[in-house]
Amino acid sequence: MARNQVWVVVMDSVRKEKVHKFEEFVDRRLKPDLVHAIAERDKVFAQQKVFSDLKRNIELLERNGVTNLRTLVNLGSEVYMQADAPDTRHIFVDVGLGFHVEFTWSEALEFISVKEARLARQIEEYTHLIAGIKAQIKLVCEGIRELLQLPG
C-alpha cells in the first residue's frame, strides 16, 4: 500500500516534470520558431509585391512608350524633389546580394517573372515550415493533455 503510494507520488512528480518540459519546449522553442518563420514569409511577400509592382510599372512604360520620365525623389523625411530620367529604356534592377543589372524592358520582365517564381516557391516553403511548426505545437499540446488526463 505504502509502496504503491510512493510509486504514485514518484509517477506524479515525473509526470509533472514532463509536462513542464513539454510546455517549456512549446513556449521557448516552437512558438519563437513559428513567429520567426511567419516574419520571414511576410518579408518574402513584401518582396513579391515589390516585384509585381515593378512589373506592372514596366508594362505601363512599355504600353505608353515612355522614354523619359519626370518624377519626385524622396530625399528622406517625406521631402521630395523633382528628378528627371532622360532615358528610361534601360533600367537597373536589383538582382540580389547588392548587384544591380542593367536590363532593357523585356529583359527586366523576364527576370522579374523568374524572380517571382522563385519568390512563390520560397513562400510555399515557408508555408510548409509554418504548417509543420503548428503541427508540432499541436502534437506537444496533445501530449500534455494526455499526460494530464490519463494518469498512470
Binding site: A83, D84, D87, I91
Partner: peptide
C-alpha cells in the same frame, strides 16, 4: 523606380 529598380537621371 520602385524599391528594387532605378534609372540613371538627375535632380532638377
Amino acid at each position: 523606380f520602385g524599391k528594387v529598380a532605378f534609372f540613371p537621371g538627375r535632380l532638377i
